[in-house]
Simulated assay, not measured.
Amino acid sequence: MGANSSSISELPENEYLKKLSGAEPISENDPFWNQLLSFSFTTPTNSAELKLLEEATISVCKSLVEKNPRTGNLGSLIKVFLSRTKELKISAECQNHLFIWQAHNALFIICCLLKVFISRMSEEELQLHFTYEEKTPGSYGTECEDLIEELLCCLIQLIVEIPLLDITYSISLEAVTTLVVFLSCQLFHKEILRESLIHKYLMHGRCLPYTSRLVKTLLYNFIRQERSPPPGTHVFQQQTDGGGLLYGIASGVASESFSFSKPFVRS
């Protein structure tokens, strides 16, 4: 993943994924995120492709599980995604593929990571991973953001508020998939989870005002049975020669919009 198209076979050695899961903390304002999220990758459409993806990324996911308590890179990735979703509705209205494309890619990575995290730990441990952040020497503890609740609310708002268009279909589908992954904790525990943290967020927290609209939207979309758009419709079209003035300008604008320290322009 990164500025060039990625294939499943390349993922274990991908330099951007290695950095994400490495020992160095990455600030949410680092230009690295523009590089990581600028990839063209066809989302798996069947169980065989999904299995190949999981096998190819398991080493990266395990590394992040181990090192995230020291780096907080999972939290940084989620904050980057949350910052991009603020522009999604207007991006859909303006047919701005770039913002939607990078937001989708961020959510795709989050969903892949969540599958591994949830299968390997309890909800309480998962919550801790969402609160880890880099600690600078001499800094005092501050109240941590509840990123799980923020992410859940964001996913629900994305599903109910973003119009379902060809360019938003993939990110809407990824939002539904990520919600399903969040709710799959019980599958990995023999004992009955009588007090699920995720259910609590959905039924009693900030998500509550949106839950009825979520059910309505999901039922409405199911009844409509809209055909999925052609693969890659949501992808921002890059030139394949490694350059592209339009892409460079667009990436620069995106960088400024997200207050990155400097714009990322492909070489």
Score class of each variant (00 low, 15 high):
150 E>Q: 11
265 V>F: 04
148 I>D: 00
54 E>M: 14
10 E>S: 14
16 Y>M: 05
137 P>E: 05
92 A>L: 03
2 G>T: 04
238 Q>M: 07
26 I>R: 11
254 A>I: 04
146 D>Q: 04
233 T>P: 00
6 S>D: 06
177 T>L: 13
200 K>V: 13
193 L>C: 05
244 G>S: 02
230 P>T: 12
155 L>D: 12
244 G>Y: 01
199 H>K: 14
96 N>E: 02
253 V>T: 11
157 Q>K: 14
226 E>K: 10
44 P>K: 04
131 T>S: 12
59 S>Q: 07
249 I>T: 08
19 K>H: 02
128 L>Q: 13
173 L>H: 13
195 E>Y: 03
26 I>N: 10
223 I>C: 06
172 S>D: 07
198 I>M: 03
203 M>W: 15
167 I>Y: 05
192 I>P: 06
264 F>R: 01
186 Q>T: 06
242 G>W: 02
263 P>V: 02
206 R>W: 06
78 I>C: 04
36 L>I: 12
75 G>F: 01
220 Y>E: 15
65 V>L: 14
143 E>D: 07
83 S>E: 13
24 E>N: 14
163 P>Q: 05
103 A>R: 00
136 T>S: 10
212 S>K: 14
157 Q>A: 12
183 L>H: 06
202 L>R: 06
136 T>C: 08
50 L>Y: 09
206 R>I: 09
137 P>H: 02
199 H>T: 12
254 A>C: 07
72 G>N: 07
45 T>E: 15
13 E>K: 10
173 L>N: 12
63 S>R: 09
38 S>V: 09
40 S>N: 12
217 T>V: 10
20 L>Q: 00
193 L>Y: 01
8 I>A: 02
124 E>G: 09
33 W>G: 09
137 P>L: 06
21 S>I: 10
166 D>C: 03
125 E>T: 09
190 K>P: 04
233 T>M: 06
32 F>H: 05
154 C>F: 12
178 T>N: 07
17 L>W: 00
211 T>I: 14
41 F>T: 12
188 F>C: 03
206 R>Q: 15
46 N>R: 07
250 A>S: 11
56 A>L: 03
5 S>A: 13
77 L>V: 05
258 F>I: 11
1 M>R: 02
252 G>A: 01
259 S>C: 12
6 S>A: 15
72 G>H: 05
99 F>Y: 05
41 F>A: 10
187 L>K: 13
74 L>H: 06
152 L>V: 10
203 M>A: 15
39 F>N: 08
266 R>C: 07
256 E>H: 10
79 K>E: 12
246 L>F: 03
32 F>E: 01
217 T>P: 04
35 Q>P: 03
238 Q>V: 11
92 A>Y: 02
15 E>D: 05
105 N>E: 11
209 P>E: 09
86 K>V: 07
81 F>T: 03
111 C>G: 14
195 E>T: 03
3 A>E: 08
246 L>P: 01
203 M>S: 15
210 Y>V: 11
179 L>F: 08
14 N>G: 01
179 L>G: 00
66 E>Y: 07
186 Q>V: 05
72 G>A: 08
130 F>D: 00
47 S>V: 08
51 K>R: 10
1 M>N: 07
40 S>L: 08
27 S>K: 10
